[in-house]
Design a protein around this nucleic acid. Structure first.
Lengths: 196, 196, 196, 196
DNA sequence: CATGAATGAGGCTTCATTCAT
DNA sequence: AATGAATGAAGCCTCATTCAT
């Protein structure tokens, strides 16, 4: 990955893409993204060879950022249940605080341009979350399925809930609690931690 | 007495759109859809004024078909848990038996061209499923949240699972069972039916 | 000219074309004309082989009607000046009373689809007007130019004036008088009849 | 410092449009214009957002050029009659020397795509001619009508004559003289200048 | 003959990408 | 490297005309 001169410009483009994809969808012209970034349309292509490459990198960046936000400040000593609760709270706080990023991510998740490789890399970025889920499902009803499947399910619940929160911001806290209990039941089968 | 507008042709176009969207995405040209349907380019527009209208109608048709498949043959006398199991089984059987429809549906669900009106009509088509979920969550941990949110969560789990099944068809049955238990825990909180 | 069954339908199409061309221009689709006429789009083509033919016939019909209106009730015994005045008055009265026809005619006059033959036939329809002008220019300043050129000039003044009248209906009468004197000066060189 | 937008290219497009509209009418495809201009299809749209905008600008340019040609070299000291004669001569000389421009102009004059704004701007471009006519009609039979109407009439005679000249180039000079006298009679009422 | 669906050739315009400056 | 004009391949849709009923 040879880095062209200005990391700033590069990031400006990514940020602009996030904004503009959130509001206008993936169909947005590269020229629009460039203008939003305050960059000439030709310049965009010195930072990203291709629109598809830009989208792939953006997807990865957003997914990584989201994962980092979710797994920040986890206290290793806490019970899994508390750790999951903490993670989930940070997850949806990040998402509702960054609705453009969330919206862009949602579009990218299903975009044809995102390659299988990128999807693989993205799930790697989720390894922090995956690790926690791994510990949390131990001894529970999900103990025998592939971890990836568990992650898929939790992710689905999380994203559905976040979308609902964005639609109905006043209820965000309430939905967050309900969703946490649901996630925990999916993972651990009851409201008590698996080890108890 | 001119050549009457043919329901067959219309359906041929919808089926062609399903196939071609499943494999090439929503960006597919209308000309491609028309050719796949064995119909002239212009003819497509006598059945659907607009590409967007075609997509909206297709979305509604697929969603309706899926819902009908899922809710067929429910025995009113059965316990909710059994009914949900039955419904879920039919749901994923339909989806895995119709991967093109499933894939097209997944794309359409997030397409910008799908109107709010269409989404509303689509959720109406889901009222059979919604009704069953309503009965199933009674007295459980989800009793106090809007039904729409419950539906959203169950739908998310279902679709995530189905995607996984399509990726790994050999494990479909196994995943189906695990997912059912997860759905039930989300709805009812434990593996037993809600207390009468 | 083999006449298909219903002369009525034919005329309905011509009338519809007049209306719709007046308001939407020559670009109007044949289907729009047919609908306005209360006729199926295919039927239009049994009355007029081609859109171009329809336009040509319409042009001729309108031009003929206008000429007939202008030359009705001329009293052979009157002085040329009075006959021209009478003709001009009937001309613009017809035009302002039939703004759609006038507008359609104006568009057709410059349409690419109108053939040289049709233009020739149209000037034949103007022979009544031409004859009067021929008598009126005798001995005047226009006596030595081709009659066609005289007709062209008078026609130009007439149409420009009529367009102005349609734009400013309240001034129609006043403009009519001024224009008549101008026409007469062009033809006869002064306000007195040529023979005097 | 990218390749600067070239005035040459812009003009090439306008010239190409003139040629091609003169010979094929306003229906000409933008692609045809672009090819005639030696420019890529898409490039045309960097100079003119829209076909309609191109037509409007072309109309204005041609009208302005024609007016400038007509009013060049007027000697302020000359009598109005001589000035009008001079102007008219330059007018038809320009028109017959530039038949494509004349023909294109005639089509554009009646095109639906030409805005009211453009028409307004075009009459502004005619202010030189209008001023001269204003002085020429003083004390004559046209002294009490709006100047715009006078302009309309003179313009109508002029254009009708020019069309005739293009049809019959050998007679251009003769028609020019006759038309001048006719114009002057319309304006001033007789062959002598308006009484001082 | 009437009807209106079917056809398919274009038309205008957009847009990712390239290239001259 | 930055800029923004240049390119030309599509894409959606319209419409005159034909044809099955």
């Amino acid at each position: 990955m040879p880095r062209p001169r200005s990391e700033d410009r590069r990031n400006a483009i990514l940020r602009a893409a996030t904004r503009v994809i959130a509001s206008q969808g993936l169909g947005t012209a590269t020229a629009t993204i460039a203008k939003e970034a305050g960059v000439s349309n030709g310049s965009l292509f010195t930072y990203f060879d291709t629109k598809a490459k830009l989208l792939n990198e953006l997807f990865l960046a957003l997914k990584t950022e989201m994962s980092a936000a979710a797994t920040a400040d986890l206290r290793a000593g806490d019970a899994p249940r508390e750790q999951v609760r903490h993670m989930w709270t940070q997850w949806w706080r990040w998402a509702t605080a960054n609705p453009d990023k969330r919206r862009a991510l949602a579009q990218l998740q299903v975009a044809d341009d995102i390659t299988a490789d990128t999807h693989r890399a993205a799930s790697l970025a989720f390894s922090g979350i995956a690790g926690l889920l791994e510990r949390s499902r131990a001894n529970g009803p999900m103990q025998d399925v592939p971890l990836g499947f568990v992650l898929t399910l939790v992710n689905a619940i999380a994203e559905a809930t976040i979308d609902e929160m964005i639609r109905e911001p006043a209820e965000a806290e309430a939905r967050g609690s309900v969703a946490f209990e649901a996630i925990w039941r999916v993972l651990a089968g009851s409201s008590t931690a698996p080890t108890a």
